[in-house]
Every structure is written in C-alpha cells, then in structure tokens.
Simulated assay, not measured.
Amino acid sequence: MNFRTAIDFPGNPGYIDHRQQILLLGSCFAENIGLWLQQRKFNVDINPFGTLYNPLSIAQSWERIVEGKTIIENELFAFNNLWHSYDHHSRFSGCDKKATLSLMNRRIEKIHRQVPNIDRIIITWGTAYVFRLKETGKVVANCHKQPASIFDRVLLSVDEIVSRWRDIIKHIENNLPQCRILFTVSPIRHLSDGAHGNQISKSTLLLAINRLQQEFGICDYFPSYEIMMDDLRDYR
C-alpha cells in the first residue's frame, strides 16, 4: 500500500546556488530553512527584524530595509521591564533603551547595505490574521504578550495582501533586475486560530501568492505547506 501523496512541482536546477546573496523573511519556517542553508555555506541573511508571521508586517520590514529607515526612540515602548518595538520579534527586546535601539538599527543598517546585491528573496507567510492597535490602527508584527484588549484581531483579505505587495514587487523588478522572489506558506498550524480558522488563513495566503504569481514573472512558489500536510502526513 502506498502511504504517500507525492507532491509534484516544477524543478529549477540552479535556482539557488552558493554564488547568490539570499535573504529570508518571515515565519519560523523561514528561520529553519535559513539555518539549514547557512550550515551548508550558502550566503544567507535571515530575518533582520526577527521572526514575522503576517504579510503586512513582512512587507513593512522589507520597505524599511530598502529605505535604511532606522528605528527612533518614540517607536519603542516599555512593557514587563523591557523595551520593545512593534515591528520586531521579542529577541530584539532589551532592558536598556539605548542598547535595544542600537541593536535594532545596526541590524537594519547591515542589511540595507546588502540590498543591491540580493539575488533571491525567500518569503514565508505564516498567517493571514493580524493584530491592530486599537489606539492607532497600526498592524503589529508582535504583541509582546500585552493584553488582548488593546488590539483588534482581523483576517486580511486576498485583495488587501495583493495590493500591499504589488508595489513592492514592482519596485524589486525595476531596481533589482537579477532578483527573484520565492514565496512559501508555513506548514506550521496556528491552532490558536482553531482548525477551521487555520485553514481559512492558509488558504487566503495561498490565493494571494497565486495572484501575485499570475501578475509578476519574478514570483515563484515552493509547496512547503502541501509537502508537509500531504506528502509527509502520518497516515497511521
């Protein structure tokens, strides 16, 4: 009996090689793939803002990288005796405000200098749900364990995601002609959304990526979600 559901996808030998500058952005799946590539001596940079999950926060991180736009003091806030940024993962948080700001900005400045040489951008979206600060409407990359009452939780639409990424991809096409974008959807379930909610979220991401592929020739898709959910499923 065959216990596999083999996933077919077009092969592209040489799509990634050791001569290229590769940037990975997104969820913890991007982190793990990036570390795997790093261990095998690929030239990679992994998540300059830390682990990010939703398409809008990842888009904002890319724009700040391109602009070299550093974090300013009033963008930090204090909670639980640490200074945080709503645009960063908690790994960047610290007890000293100036040191925290310096750590974030050194990282932004480093990757900003590398932008002209980037050949591949691997982007892993984890969820289509976002948290907006009620006070400002800002979409946050990380809530930093603050009370849920200060946020609105919203499911993005396919149109919202595509609209947000369309200008970014056009800019990459025009300014980084050597660059291609490889989208993936994290195979890690967000069960806090509920089993059905997780499927709606992942489906929204997949539909958005499909739209972007149809519009832009530089966009590719790797079926990590399908491989994990179907091919590697334990059928016992």
Rank of each mutant, 00 (worst) to 15 (best):
A208M: 13
L101M: 11
I150P: 02
H88W: 08
V44Q: 07
I122H: 06
Q146D: 13
L76C: 10
D230E: 13
Q20D: 01
V66G: 04
I72H: 01
R153A: 02
R211W: 03
E67S: 07
L176K: 07
N54L: 05
D87E: 11
D8W: 04
I150D: 04
N2Q: 01
R189K: 12
L37E: 11
H89M: 06
I16H: 07
R106N: 13
I218L: 14
I161M: 05
C28K: 14
S85P: 14
M229E: 13
T124G: 02
V140D: 08
F79T: 03
N47E: 03
P116K: 10
N74D: 15
A148C: 07
V140C: 06
I118K: 01
P10H: 07
T124R: 02
D96K: 02
F29V: 10
N210W: 09
V140W: 07
M1E: 00
F9G: 00
H88T: 12
I46W: 08
E109R: 12
H196S: 15
Y86A: 15
F3S: 04
R153T: 02
V139E: 03
L56C: 03
F3G: 01
L156C: 14
I169E: 13
L103F: 11
V162K: 05
P147D: 02
I209E: 15
L156A: 12
G68Y: 00
A195I: 11
F42H: 09
F29Q: 12
Q146P: 11
L182I: 15
V66F: 03
N174T: 10
E109Y: 05
G11K: 11
K110W: 06
L52H: 02
I108F: 09
R107H: 03
H89R: 09
H112Y: 09
D17W: 05
R106G: 14
I33V: 13
H89I: 08
S85F: 08
